[in-house]
């Protein structure tokens, strides 16, 4: 009896928590179908698909979206490469300054975004760098790096170091060992880090706003649009971004599952242990909410 009550309570609490997390997102999605009057989109006036018909009719919006995706892909590529090497250095080698780097890697995660954005802008001004696409890219690589290091590092630490020794023992040099053994083994971690970095980059507003110059990114565009009223297109785009991120996360989960099945096809005990841990990413619409 007692146990049944507890099971029920557990279910209720969980549902409440999930509702708390998802109601705002649900509202955003719902209001993209709202047949609103005027410049605002706050009261429900009935269902329509008209906002979905031409979400890209604004050319500025298309540019912003393209910028965001380009910056996202580029900063992900750079951050994943640098971060993977940094994680390997931290896990595999003992060197002078390792402790300091270990600490500083976490700093961008702990620093308030406003502080980091302002600091970066100051830095760019001091060095007389005009802000724009490149400075956004630099800023995004910077804050993505920490997350990549943390994610890849966890994977590396779970790996038996003797496996790399075995590769060298069998005649593989440093490079061959990395490409043939280390990278395939940490691939799930690297993939997860990539998804995380892309999601962080695409939905960043605060740091980007300091360093964007005349360049528009998607979150910047949405924020700008809300100042002249709240067009329902914002909800449409936010929903699209949400769907894109969800797809990416789903892809990541599938990839993780495939990789772990590759390592233990047949689903033995190991396969269960290696069940993918999907990265939890706060979806993009927070910028539009």
């Amino acid at each position: 009896m007692n146990a049944r009550v507890r099971t029920w309570m557990l279910g209720i609490w969980s549902t409440a928590a999930i509702l708390y997390l998802f109601i705002p997102i649900f509202i955003v999605v719902l209001f993209s179908f709202n047949d609103n009057r005027g410049r605002f989109n706050f009261t429900w006036n009935g269902f329509t698909l008209r906002h979905w018909a031409h979400p890209f009719r604004d050319p500025d919006l298309v540019t912003a979206l393209r910028n965001s995706i380009e910056i996202g892909l580029l900063s992900t590529a750079v951050a994943v490469t640098l971060g993977t090497f940094l994680a390997m250095a931290l896990v595999r080698y003992r060197f002078r300054g390792r402790g300091a780097i270990d600490l500083f890697v976490f700093l961008p995660m702990a620093t308030p975004e406003v502080v980091m954005g302002a600091a970066l802008l100051a830095l760019f001004l001091v060095f007389n760098v005009s802000t724009g696409f490149v400075t956004i890219l630099i800023a995004h690589v910077m804050f993505c790096l920490s997350y990549v290091v943390v994610t890849v590092r966890a994977r590396l630490e779970g790996m038996d170091p003797h496996i790399e020794e075995a590769a060298r023992d069998l005649g593989a040099g440093e490079m061959t060992t990395f490409w043939k053994v280390t990278l395939p083994m940490i691939a799930p971690g690297v993939a997860a880090a990539g998804v995380l970095a892309f999601a962080l980059s695409v939905d960043d507003y605060v740091i980007t706003s300091f360093n964007a110059g005349q360049t528009q990114t998607f979150p910047l565009f949405i924020f700008g649009a809300t100042r002249q009223g709240v067009p329902a297109e914002v909800n449409v785009l936010a929903t699209m971004l949400l769907i894109a991120v969800l797809l990416l996360m789903g892809l990541n989960v599938l990839l993780q599952r495939r990789l772990s099945r590759r390592d233990a096809s047949g689903g033995g005990a190991e396969a269960v242990e290696e069940e993918p841990r999907p990265m939890v990413v706060t979806p993009a619409p927070s910028a539009a909410g």
């Binding site: 038996d160 003797h162 496996i163 020794e165 075995a166 590769a167 053994v181 083994m185 590759r262 390592d263």
Partner: peptide
């Protein structure tokens, strides 16, 4: 190796 260190992939 004692742990065999086979390549799992």
């Amino acid at each position: 190796f004692q742990s065999y260190a086979l390549f799992p992939h």
